[in-house]
């Protein structure tokens, strides 16, 4: 690997063995979230709680900032001069961006977070020792730490019966975050393997995308050229591992795609489509 590669195409470093990287990617799971369609209903967040056994921490701890919502809806008020009912809000669904050059990965002292061949940042709960460095180095702040043991308080009997058996319940002292519904990816891949065929586009749907009433979230594999998400990325000229020009630089109002904190060059896997408004 040349110095040029490190300096200019850092995320290419992870592209594949033939290009001098570490991985032969099987998939590059990615998302496209259309903010024009997002109505801020929090259905995705709720679905995530149900799917991934997220602990319900209670009002007090939520206010303290100790919540465990892997998928959160960020709300930004628009017109500062107006009061609440007239004031408009922008919503931004925020979850782990599964960065191609993730900043959380190199800082973990025990390598509990690492890059999978699916292009995801896996968090190995059993390996985590809770140094919380990954969260500190995540510009999106989407890593959640188990500050308490929630098993009894979050799922009192008989609530534990509704826990998803495909995914573990984390105990205190462990970091966790959005996995792009790793357990669903696993079962879809297993099914495709048993049927001796590639994974089809639309076969794998994470809980948030599944529950979105306006279908704002499109999920898919960017290595599959024909997938919906690939087409969206292509249409809006967002490419992996390439520093994106801002929309202003592109001077094309139709190109609404952007990735958050593009300037940090962390190569996120989530592309957002900007909300179009007439008043701004």
């Amino acid at each position: 690997m040349s110095l040029d590669n490190i300096l200019n195409h850092w995320s290419d470093y992870r592209k594949g063995a033939e290009e001098g990287g570490h991985h032969d990617y099987e998939h590059r799971w990615a998302m496209a979230i259309n903010l024009d369609l997002c109505i801020g209903c929090n259905a995705c967040s709720t679905a995530c709680y149900a799917e991934n056994n997220l602990a319900v921490v209670g009002k007090e701890r939520f206010e303290k900032g100790q919540a465990m919502h892997w998928m959160r809806i960020e709300r930004y008020w628009d017109q500062q001069e107006l009061e609440h009912p007239e004031q408009g809000a922008s919503f931004l669904p925020m979850m782990c961006q599964q960065c191609g050059a993730a900043t959380c990965e190199p800082v973990c002292p025990v390598a509990a977070t690492y890059h999978t061949p699916d292009g995801l940042n896996a968090q190995v709960y059993n390996r985590c020792i809770g140094s919380r460095y990954c969260s500190n180095n995540c510009p999106f702040r989407v890593r959640y730490f188990n500050f308490y043991s929630y098993y009894e308080s979050s799922w009192p009997e008989p609530m534990e019966q509704q826990l998803n058996p495909d995914i573990s319940v984390r105990d205190k002292g462990v970091m966790e975050k959005c996995t792009f519904c790793m357990q669903r990816i696993r079962s879809v891949k297993d099914k495709a393997f048993m049927e001796d065929r590639p994974v089809q586009d639309g076969e794998m749907v994470p809980a948030c995308a599944q529950s979105c009433p306006t279908s704002a979230i499109v999920f898919g594999d960017t290595m599959d050229e024909s997938s919906m998400v690939s087409k969206l990325w292509k249409k809006h000229q967002v490419e992996r591992g390439v520093y994106q020009k801002t929309k202003l630089a592109k001077k094309d109002a139709d190109l609404r795609g952007y990735r958050i904190f593009e300037e940090l060059n962390v190569d996120p896997s989530v592309m957002y489509l900007e909300r179009v408004r007439e008043d701004i």
């Binding site: 900032g65 809770g130 969260s135 730490f145 500050f147």
Partner: peptide, 15 residues
């Protein structure tokens, strides 16, 4: 015994 949350640590303030 109770957890790191007793130190008031929260999501941005992990350290």
């Amino acid at each position: 015994t109770v957890g790191m949350g007793t130190a008031n640590l929260n999501n941005p303030h992990m350290w």
